[in-house]
């Protein structure tokens, strides 16, 4: 997995298209949303994610399970008083994957705009 800084400049003839570097795991609206929120919040509670992403608990759990299996997030269960709470934290691999995805998206947009003006 390469970092966003390693992404080559847009060049249709020589460099691979930015789409070829997109990671299915992250290039998905909900999972990108989870990673973005967890990155910005440092640590985010399950209920907050569910509200912000407008998902059912089951749906969010499935996405979290995929991300956790891939080692991009860490899920931690605990209690606040008597209330059970689940906290999600981004792992270093999660931070890197998010940075790479954002970099690829920006590059893709730049490529589209260059083609449009060219």
């Amino acid at each position: 997995m390469t970092g966003a800084a390693d992404i080559p400049e847009p060049d249709e003839t020589e460099s691979p298209h930015p789409v070829t570097g997109l990671d299915d795991l992250v290039h998905q609206r909900v999972r990108l949303g989870i990673l973005t929120i967890a990155h910005e919040a440092r640590r985010v509670e399950f209920g907050y994610l569910r509200t912000q992403l407008e998902l059912t608990a089951g749906n969010l759990s499935q996405h979290l399970s995929v991300l956790e299996t891939a080692g991009l997030v860490q899920v931690e269960k605990g209690y606040a008083g008597r209330r059970a709470r689940t906290w999600i934290t981004l792992t270093p691999a999660g931070h890197a994957a998010l940075a790479e995805e954002i970099g690829r998206l920006k590059l893709l947009i730049a490529r589209v705009e260059t083609t449009d003006h060219g």
């Binding site: 997109l22 299915d24 290039h27 609206r29 990108l32 949303g33 910005e40 912000q52 947009i109």
Partner: peptide, 20 residues
Amino acid sequence: DATPVGGDPRRLLADARDLA
């Protein structure tokens, strides 16, 4: 999954910024 509905890069990036 790879390019779902709403998977347009501009829209994905705008969504991410809005969430942040």
